[in-house]
Design a binder for these strands. Structure first.
Length: 573
DNA sequence: GCCGTTTTCGGCCCGACTGTTTTCAGTCG
């Protein structure tokens, strides 16, 4: 995300929090929050939008907020922001982060007890003064205390793989409950978002009370946050801390509406409901209603049909133009895992992988791939057992021998060659020329002219793919300081391919940039970067990113047959 | 503050759970 987008989004979020703390309710608050999210979701740099006076082309940004953005970019300050936060101790904003503690309560604590921060809050809870406030009580205060303890103990958002595994384990256990007929995960996990905050599980069945009891008595449940007759929320103990899992129990006649609703995103649902409203319909998790009459609800498709839209895939539901595209019949037919014929970035024991070439080949044949690329590290990646030029040539000889005897499966002669700090590639051209596929990437000098180095690699006729183009590690490391717009432009000009690295900790390019690449007519390659056989199934996470980026099978070179891929690599066509 | 198939005003998604209350406000998703 462009740096200023992020900066401005947090400013607008803080304005929303601040005016809410000061007693503002309703739609102004909502408008600031919506603007913040719009900035986060936008692939366009707010700096450019402002320069070209196109800020208001983003839904959720009107003249008022556009003016404030311009003021901030021009002067480094925003009067409205200063005004909003003036007189409010900084600690109040941290208190708002706590589950179960909202603006009204924070304000009450601040005004009546001079609670300025988390420390004050703990003190007033301990001495009983918080519980004696009007509208407060012992139980409410104990909920807040638990929430403080939780926030000190729990990690940030989950990686996609952890979320998928947690959901799978909860669903696996509940499937044995004879009361349950349908069960599935919804929420951001179903949309394939790169990180997941909590898990939403949706069920239909009889005896909701029994289902809730079964759910809340799971051995890994450490705390029950809420348990009613239609929903329950609990905290699960996992290897990365406590994680919230929500369960909803829905009547079968509402299953589709509920699935639609609980899949989100929030922005998508608001847009959909507004559309329904204009048609005199009301959409809730129970169905689509005209007056009191339910006109749909059993399936998701029927919900969309009611507002004259085709079914919209969950990965597209981010309020990024999917509703407009659906209305025009211009939704893409998204790439699927079953379209994938190859994995073009993986390592074996020859460099820093765990398995042999033969083991990787056998595993990929099981996945019904028709070809793969073994891409060992290059010579200067000493830490990763990079191959010398001689070693790489001997590897190529072995691959040639393998291919000579192989039917219906081919290994591409390839490398993951380092782009060195000087901007050169780590092997001479005459070595690279013998290869079918050259994947180039940065593993050193993250702060040294990264854009220039990557663009120089893109201009080299022997290079095909740039792997993990930003180098980000989710939650651990921001990407390199790289100008992706320029990289995409250069890739388009020289007909080069950008990678979606499917490792759940990278997912690089992300959905927004991969979509931008597609719009610039750049092809993408989804690869696992597997260092072991078991990593090969990360492909599914890369597919989710690709689908969130609106990619079809035509945008992804892993969907090409062996001969078509080889031709494409040689000719760019 | 944003937005427009009711377009420059008057709407803005909808419902469950909890706690403190005795009909509802606050919070969450």
């Amino acid at each position: 995300m462009p740096a200023k987008n992020k900066e401005l989004a947090s400013i607008f979020t803080q304005i929303a929090d601040a005016i809410e703390l000061k007693g503002e309710t309703g739609f102004k608050v909502l408008a600031y929050r919506r603007a913040a999210r719009a900035l986060v979701d936008s692939a366009e740099d707010v700096v450019n939008l402002d320069k070209e006076s196109r800020l208001e082309s983003i839904t959720g940004i009107g003249s008022g907020i556009a003016r404030k953005i311009h003021e901030y970019l021009a002067t480094g300050r925003m009067k409205k922001h200063q005004e909003a936060i003036s007189g409010l101790p900084e600690g109040l904003f941290a208190m708002l982060e706590l589950q179960g503690l909202g603006p009204r309560t924070v304000r009450l604590l601040y005004e009546k007890l001079k609670v300025n921060n988390l420390e004050d809050l703990k003190r007033t809870i301990a001495d009983g003064s918080a519980a004696s406030l009007p509208g407060m009580g012992v139980r409410k205060v104990s909920t807040i205390l638990k929430s403080i303890q939780l926030s000190e103990k729990s990690g940030k958002r989950m990686f996609l793989n952890e979320a998928a595994e947690l959901a799978e384990s909860v669903i696996h256990r509940l499937k044995n409950d004879p009361n349950i007929s349908n069960i599935t995960a919804a929420g951001s996990l179903r949309r394939g978002k790169e990180t997941v905050g909590d898990i939403d599980i949706l069920t239909t069945g009889k005896n909701p009370k029994e289902i809730v009891k079964n759910f809340t008595s799971h051995p890994s449940v450490r705390q029950i946050l809420a348990a009613g007759t239609t929903k329950a929320s609990v905290l699960f103990e996992t290897r990365t801390g406590l994680r919230q899992v929500d369960l909803r129990i829905i009547d079968a006649s509402s299953y589709g509406a509920a699935l639609q609703y609980f899949t989100g995103s929030k922005g998508h649902n608001i847009a959909l409901r507004s559309l329904a409203q204009k048609k005199g319909l009301k959409i809730s998790e129970y169905g689509v209603f005209r007056g009191k009459k339910r006109v749909a609800g059993k399936t998701e498709k029927a919900v969309y049909t009611c507002v004259n839209l085709p079914y919209i895939e969950p990965e597209l539901r981010e309020d990024r133009g999917e509703i407009e595209a659906a209305a025009k019949g211009k939704l893409p037919r998204l790439v699927e895992l079953k379209n994938i014929k190859s994995d073009l970035h993986m390592h074996t024991r020859q460099s820093d992988g765990k398995n042999s070439v033969e083991e990787m080949v056998a595993a990929c044949q099981k996945l019904h791939y028709t070809h793969i690329a073994i891409t060992e590290h290059s010579v200067s990646a000493g830490y990763a057992g990079g191959l010398t030029a001689d070693e790489l040539m001997r590897h190529c000889d072995r691959v040639d021998r393998f291919n000579a005897h192989s039917k219906g499966f081919k290994i591409l002669k390839a490398t993951e060659v380092d782009i060195t700090t000087s901007g050169k590639l780590d092997y001479p051209d005459k070595i690279l020329a013998r290869l079918d596929l050259v994947v180039a990437s940065i593993h050193q000098g993250f702060k040294k002219n990264v854009t220039e180095r990557v663009c120089a690699a893109l201009k080299n006729p022997l290079v095909h793919i740039i792997a993990h183009p930003t180098g980000r590690l989710i939650g651990k490391r921001e990407g390199y300081d790289i100008d992706l717009d320029k990289v995409i432009e250069t890739a388009a000009r020289f007909r080069k391919i950008l990678e979606i690295n499917a490792y759940y900790g990278r997912l690089d390019l992300n959905d927004i940039w991969a979509r931008k690449a597609k719009q610039a007519n750049v092809k993408l390659s989804i690869n696992t970067d597997a260092h072991a056989v078991k990593n090969l199934d990360w492909m599914k996470y890369g597919i989710l990113v690709a689908r969130r980026a609106w990619l079809t099978r035509n945008d992804v070179i892993n969907c090409l047959s062996t001969s078509k891929l080889l031709k494409f690599l040689k000719t760019g066509i």
